[in-house]
Simulated scan of single mutants.
Amino acid sequence: MYLFTSESVSAGHPDKCADIIADYIVDSLLELDPNARVATEVFVVGKHVIIGGEVKINSTLEKEFYIDIAKKALKKIGYPESGFKIGETLNPEECIYEVYISRQSPDISIGVDRNNKEIGAGDQGMMFGFATIERDDFMPSALMFAREIRDILYKNAKSNPDKFGVDLKTQVTLDYGTKENFDNCRPQRIDKIVVAQSHTGDILPDDVRKRVKELIFQKASFADKYLDENTQFLINGTGRFVTHGPIADSGLSGRKVVVDTYGGYAPIGGGSQSSKDYTKVDRSGLYAARWIAKHIVAAGLAKKALVEIAYVIGEPKPVSVTVNTLGSSSENISDEELSIKIAEKFSLTPKWITEKFGLDKPSADSFLYHEIAAKGQIGYEEYPWEKIDEIEWFRALV
């Protein structure tokens, strides 16, 4: 056996509640002003929702603006579910909201908003892109299996609020058989599935476990290929999960970066994506790095690709672009050559990334940041940064 584990969490998880509120704010401010600068953090604990940070926008907003957004976000997530008693789940109408929003420092604006229409990086830092041939979407398997189970159970909870809560976690342990199989992107079977599913107090623990297993076997796309008689199911390990969500545990924006990106298969950057506008390279740099890594693998240049892009605050161009194919390259081009050619071909400035992916114009017709926060920052083909639209250039490198 050679095992690797990844996890995921639903929109109702306390940390995700915070992320979704934060990105609902980003969506709303960019709708009012595409040049808005946003860096807000959210803390949810018990019945308290605390919003703080810095904003620069061409209009004056009252605290009620942010409070209304937070309520909308929590209701869209699915709170409160009908089957739970007071004190077991969150009710957005009963929460106490505190808002501490100040104006973005002019010292940052000096470097970000340039006279030549270019955009300087909103902060220093490094971001990573990763891709693998394990799946058609070029994402690592354990993470995407955990996400798929999450989506199945979350949909069930939203459809049955009298029985299940929207706060849940999933975890998948994948058996690659050997280290060689892992290196060559060949998963063999699922060894363990771990689920924490909130539920009403009148449902017996064994009934919760039975229903969760039924849903996975019936609806998971990977069930026939990767589940077998030796797959272990560990569902609600304490036996009971009634009190849930921020009522049971605090949530903070930016804490689920591994869940949002590569599930531990690859390094993560220096900061989270949620709560930030497109000038913050923690967000835009991640999208660009993933786009490059995906192209490298899709073009057949390597079985795996890890791309690092680094920036300094106030400067548009990255200070470094580095490709590492993790010993899986086709041997027709070196990692050094790939790094140089990619850096020469694509400017990778915040403005270039923003214009290519439309990051300043989130909408229901393209993408909304708060919906991305709920699903994951990368890995879904409908995202603009998942489009393989420069594949011929990458193939020509061979």
Rank of each mutant, 00 (worst) to 15 (best):
E7H: 06
V194C: 12
A374C: 12
Q232W: 12
G263K: 01
E355H: 02
G263Q: 05
L3E: 08
P350D: 14
A220V: 10
G269I: 06
A373S: 15
P140W: 08
D202Y: 01
G53R: 01
K179C: 09
S275D: 12
G239P: 14
N35T: 11
L153K: 01
N58Q: 14
A299I: 13
R395C: 11
I77Q: 01
Y24W: 12
T261D: 05
G53H: 02
T5G: 03
G129V: 04
C95P: 15
K169G: 00
T200V: 00
A396V: 14
T178I: 13
V44M: 11
I152Q: 08
D19E: 05
G358P: 05
A293E: 14
A289F: 04
I309F: 03
R240P: 07
E88K: 00
S328D: 15
A73C: 12
F217R: 09
S221R: 14
W291D: 02
D33M: 10
T200S: 00
F138V: 14
Q124R: 08
A305H: 02
D15M: 07
T89W: 02
V259D: 08
Q197S: 03
G111P: 11
L153E: 13
K317V: 10
Y176G: 00
Y176L: 09
L227W: 08
I86G: 04
L359Y: 05
I372T: 03
R209A: 14
Y2K: 15
L32A: 09
G300C: 06
L215A: 06
I50M: 15
K304Q: 08
I378N: 00
I101V: 09
A146G: 03
K361V: 14
F394L: 13
R209V: 14
K63Y: 14
P187C: 06
D224H: 06
G314N: 10
E93R: 09
P246G: 01
P350I: 07
K56N: 12
G53W: 02
S284T: 07
M139K: 06
E64M: 13
V9E: 13
V172I: 09
F357E: 08
A11F: 04
K56Y: 06
Y97D: 09
T349Y: 04
T200C: 00
V38Q: 03
P14L: 05
Q218M: 07
Y2F: 11
I296L: 12
G120K: 00
L338Y: 07
V99P: 04
T60Y: 11
W393D: 12
S250K: 04
M144T: 14
Y278V: 05
S330Y: 03
K71N: 11
W291N: 00
K179R: 07
D260G: 00
F84Y: 15
L252F: 05
T354V: 04
I203Q: 02
A374S: 10
T5M: 13
A305V: 07
Y100K: 14
Y383F: 15
I20Q: 01
D113S: 08
T178Y: 13
F233C: 10
Y262P: 01
H244Y: 07
T5P: 06
D260R: 01
P14V: 05
K179N: 08
K210F: 09
T279H: 02
